[in-house]
Design a protein around this nucleic acid. Sequence first.
DNA 1: AAAGTTTGTAAATTGATTAAACAAACTTAG
DNA 2: CTAAGTTTGTTTAATCAATTTACAAACTTT
Lengths: 395, 395
Amino acid sequence: MKPTGDLSLVKKINKSLVLDYIRTQSPISRAKIAEISGLTKATVSSLVNELIESHLTYEIGVGQSSGGRKPMMLLFNGTAGYAVGIDLGVHYIYAALTDLNGTIVEEYRMSHRNESVEQVFAKLMECIRELISRAPESTYGIVGIGIGIPGISDEQGNVLFAPNLGWEHVPLQAMLEKEFDIPVIIDNEANTGAVGEKQFGVGKSASHLVYISIGMGIGTGIIINNELYRGTTGFSGELGHMSIQFDGPKCPCGNRGCWELYASEHALLDRARTELGIAQVTVEDLLKLAEEGHPAAIGLFERLADYLSVGIVSIINGLNPDLILIGGRLAEAQKWLREPILKALEQRSLPYPREQLNVQFSELGIRATVLGACSFVITNFFASTKVQLDWNRYV
Amino acid sequence: MKPTGDLSLVKKINKSLVLDYIRTQSPISRAKIAEISGLTKATVSSLVNELIESHLTYEIGVGQSSGGRKPMMLLFNGTAGYAVGIDLGVHYIYAALTDLNGTIVEEYRMSHRNESVEQVFAKLMECIRELISRAPESTYGIVGIGIGIPGISDEQGNVLFAPNLGWEHVPLQAMLEKEFDIPVIIDNEANTGAVGEKQFGVGKSASHLVYISIGMGIGTGIIINNELYRGTTGFSGELGHMSIQFDGPKCPCGNRGCWELYASEHALLDRARTELGIAQVTVEDLLKLAEEGHPAAIGLFERLADYLSVGIVSIINGLNPDLILIGGRLAEAQKWLREPILKALEQRSLPYPREQLNVQFSELGIRATVLGACSFVITNFFASTKVQLDWNRYV
DNA sequence: AAAGTTTGTAAATTGATTAAACAAACTTAG
DNA sequence: CTAAGTTTGTTTAATCAATTTACAAACTTT
């Protein structure tokens, strides 16, 4: 049954609107909100007072007058609740506690290696427990737990397949919700990273952005119309497995010539081993060599940039985003990747979709995933008091 | 300024809802609408009566009773207005007049070849004038003109670039609106085709579909969340220019190894010429040969299917749509393309995004573009009385 | 000090929905 | 064939959130 319109819907819309203005333009007065929102002063006043009652907003004191009564300035109360966000890596767990503004207030890290599902799960629990115990007292307490995983999950928060973790069909969300009795949200690491950057990083002003996480493989998170696009069954974003060479080498996924076979950390290190003749080489080593001016190392990064560009051009031509955001481990190689990529895009992409395009490297770095995970939880928390309709159905 | 909620918004939402039920489930009674919508009988009654007053709905007579008073059945009045849709082809103009249901009531065709912008524009005007003159009397008259073009246009309806037509920076929308003084909507032929199939063809039940129009080149129309995705500046859908061979031949677009260099009509005919040794060959010729069992001709279609599949796999892995729709001229080769494509997808695409995927060939054929153009106009017409908010901003 | 501005609240009004009641029209059980 | 029950669609009163209008308080400027 489709949702209908009634007065409570109107109130939800307007309350969201007012809260959003307070969140994004604070400190701000009631009168100013009325002016920019188009609502009447009376309405804004009433809604703000309800928000104050529910501790999401508070008055900070009078502000500057511009020739009349001084306005009472309002602030969003970010500390009314806290969110736990976790970046579940292949060999590490990075957990953080943020307030409702997305400001990190506590962190906790652990490493793991070749451990069983149970052992990793135990460590996960330890991280969460620790952060929850450290959380300050607040009105709404811990509003949820968000987790970014190196693999794919379904809508019920089951980890379907995380090859590098050795996980298959693990009902992670259910397990954690049973344990902690608060909302748990699971999503792919690239998706959480995309949301993190969109919400708290360089992607704030982009409406359609593609986040490319370059690690062992290539994962992508696609944000369309300011919202994470999940696809029909929640498995969108596997652009790492688009073919850039139809008769290229076989990929374990079944396809040939997948992008990530050419433009991932794995591919880079492979080439370093065979071409530089170093047996055990890491990204750090290569970065160091490049920093020292080693031409072959720099050459390797430039070739990586070329391969990356091939896929990015396809994304630009196909999706016409306003932002391409490069994240993941290899975003650290920005210094050597940036220029070659921009140059290649200039040459290879169609001029029109390129016009309003921005190409950026992640600012949040390792924190993108964790912050995205928190953002999921915070958004979900607000959604319970906000508009939750599929409006497209009305058109 | 973001839209606020008020009583008129509530009414718009509910009126849209009621009208949609009447449009999609007619004949239907007031009581039934109340039951399935969740609105009260009183509300539905009042809204229906307003719809009747505005001639968008009418009563058709009493229906079957299930043990009580007989219900008064309602129908959508599709003939309350008409839309003009045009498929502006490289060598033809196909124009149609539809009612608000999208039913074609009049058609008009013309051909053109190597003519100036002015000459083609004159023919376009002739088509429109002819159809408008043939339109039956109706409450709302001609509600707009929609045009699908073989090129790209901006949001102001300027044809920026239509190479095969030889057009560049033609303010088509402005020219036509000045002439006819009704809303004119211009969009790419693949986009209109996608919308046509979504609205009136096989795509009705798909939420995320990618329409692949295979003609001289490859154009794609992407529908996400039941809405055409236009990208940041309206230039999305150029998936024909994603590279499937990074070191492949140069494409006029600047890229190398573009999909359409391998999987378009142009590529097919090229191969036919060199490999079959026929100097002047058309798609019709090849279809005829294949029908006669000519192995080389069939082989050509199978190779086309292979190349097509490479791109389709990337789309599936990246966007996880619920429908891939193959349209355009080469959709007629369904008989030889279908099986090889399905087989290749089975082998090369990731299993999870494939689960709920459907692959279909266009049913509307040549009419897809025209109907999509009409759909734009009709949607736009209803939008004036419907909800027009960017709801995602509330999250 | 007077005049004008700005902020925020209060009271009355508006309008769309809901809830409850009801009349009309119909079916079915006995 | 009648009484009982059902279903449809309208009417009436109540509700609720926004708007309009008015206003008091607090401040700046002349």
